[in-house]
Design a protein around this nucleic acid. Structure first.
Lengths: 343, 343
DNA sequence: ACCGGCATGTATAACGTTGTAAAACTTGAG
DNA sequence: CTCAAGTTTTACAACGTTATACATGCCGGT
């Protein structure tokens, strides 16, 4: 049988509220009383019932994190960082995956299945601004990731355009002239918008052609999609000397195809990915990648949600997390030159 | 403002309990009444308050899943499968990661969030049988993974010994004679026990030496640990013709080291992993691996917890999930012979 | 007509906690 | 000694839900 405040109160010969005061470290309790009540608490092994507390306070102590998929290690690591950040604030994380489908994202943003959560962190892929505009829920929402909406919600992301430009700039500096982009997803929405824009801007700034024929649309964003896109580009007769992929799994899928077709990385084609996933550091050719500060993103997301929950909520803000380009073997050296080195 | 049963009742002109009956699909409600109430529910956008329901029923509708780490894609995929299975039963999953440390695993198993969850699925790494033996919590616990305790809890896993034997048998059939094992973790506990045993048994059965000098202990179970272990073996002057790794990331880490040292896979050294992670299908050399039925494991875990929750709990059972060996390039062909092919 | 039985709906009391307001104590000044 | 002011403790009412027990309405069989 579970013991409640009532039991402890009876045991200590005081009122329920006094016990509650002790449990909650209420200011005005005499040391003697505190001592006495604490003794009863220990004797009976009392533990507060969170459900009752939540009901009373209107808070559950749970925030939801909705990600496209866990299979992608970037999201897995991000989830880990959110869980850690939340637990530092005594919050618990409920994890959901949307598969990146608009329906699921809509469902989640509209408040899930039950009224369980105090706040929501969502990383949308296909969701449109209009879907969020008439959101009726009153639980705070914080957005993550590359999609950039002009909406009154906090949004935490790295500077995707700048990051993409840095990646392309790096390729250009290596003497690459035809840079393909893999992963501008098909469909009405354009998740990869910002990274494509960075690609385009940097090429243009360097006086090179931003050849839209070198942008390969995909259906998903996994290894297989990257492989498909790479095959598509090569089958079309194009022979770029560099590839910039929307994320690491796609870059790795593309590298596999290059390997199968006897093209060398980086000698024939240099490759840059995005997200700096651990996997990229252990392939036969290690992968140059844009590395977002995942720990910071998780921390900032949790802090934003909690701030908004506690009404210390300023204007909706766009918060920038740091990123850096990590250079590895897949972009080592100039085209057709020879390259050596390790990660 | 949040809407409660009371608001709906007022709107529909019925009692609170009637609304509750509709929400809970209580048997004896006339279709007309159900229709009318449902209309009010929709109109007001009512959603049940979990805290109140929990307080009343003593159930939360939440189960916790505690995994060593999310970064490992095997666990990420497993988590996805548990989440899906749970949602089919209207259950929500709370995700925790233990880092595989005994303290964290102990903490989780002792139910530090006991008051929030109805059940717990735990995949232990370092936890000892004695840690679980005097577990006082009354929330149902289901164990996952390779550790095999003789305790009154449901345990869901593939047949690790048989799977390991199949992997080693495959290597032997290819003419390999010196098979190293990577990943028998250091410390008092022995997480890799079963897989090492399978390795040992199969070698012995084939009349080969199960040379313990070819077993490389590691501190962790990631890419870097696999690389370290591989380096350790080669530095010791040994030159096995095959490697069986505790999991895919370690196998991939090992392959990276082989690549750096100019050893060819599979010509010089064949490699087999465990878990069949997506990453293994896209390296320069695709990875042969033992593939556990992750979907089944997730489903069975959820069903076991819920069964025990609903008192339909038979004797604690050991439940076997399926597995199969998926052969890819890393074990293609006989030693020093030539190999070609694709995944 | 009446009554037992069943299907349907309702009022009320929990579940365990905390906020509010008021009661019961202290304390110190006059 | 008394009383005001402050400190400590208490009683009680929520929070939103479901279980219980009861009230109603309806049916068919006497």
């Amino acid at each position: 049988m579970r013991v409640s405040l009532k039991d402890v109160a009876a045991h200590a010969g005081v009122s329920i509220k006094t016990v509650s005061n002790v449990v909650n470290n209420y200011q005005h309790v005499t040391p003697a009383m505190r001592e006495r009540v604490q003794r009863s608490i220990d004797a009976l092994g009392y533990r507060p019932n969170l459900a009752a507390r939540h009901l009373r306070k209107g808070r559950t102590g749970i925030i939801a994190l909705a990600l496209p998929e866990l299979g992608n290690p970037y999201f897995a690591e991000l989830a880990a960082s959110v869980i850690d950040a939340a637990s530092r604030h005594d919050y618990i994380v409920l994890l959901d995956h949307t598969g990146g489908s608009r329906e699921q994202e809509l469902l989640v943003s509209q408040g899930f299945r039950a009224r369980v959560i105090d706040g929501l962190i969502l990383s949308p892929i296909e969701l449109e601004a209009e879907d969020l505009r008439d959101r009726s829920e009153d639980v705070p929402l914080v957005l993550l990731g590359e999609r950039d909406y002009d909406l009154p919600y906090d949004h935490i992301a790295i500077d995707n355009v700048a990051a993409a430009r840095a990646a392309v700039r790096h390729l250009i500096a290596l003497g690459r002239r035809e840079v393909a982009f893999i992963g501008a997803r098909r469909g009405r929405s354009e998740p990869a918008q910002l990274r494509v824009r960075g690609w385009r801007e940097e090429l243009t700034a360097a006086g090179l052609a931003a050849d839209e024929g070198l942008v390969a649309a995909t259906d998903g964003w996994g290894h297989a999609d990257g492989a498909l896109a790479m095959n598509h580009i090569l089958d079309s007769g194009r022979r770029p000397d560099a590839v910039f992929a929307y994320n690491d799994p796609m870059a790795i899928g593309a590298m596999r195809v290059l390997h199968e077709r006897g093209l060398r990385v980086p000698e024939d084609i240099a490759v840059v990915g995005f997200d700096d996933v651990i996997e990229g550091r252990f392939g036969a050719v290690t992968l140059t990648s844009v590395s977002p500060d995942k720990a910071a993103i998780g921390r900032l997301a949790v802090e934003s949600v909690l701030a908004r929950l506690n009404d210390r909520a300023p204007e909706p803000r766009r918060i920038r997390a740091d990123h850096q380009l990590v250079e590895r073997e897949s972009t080592l050296g100039r085209p057709a030159g020879s390259a050596r080195g390790t990660h």
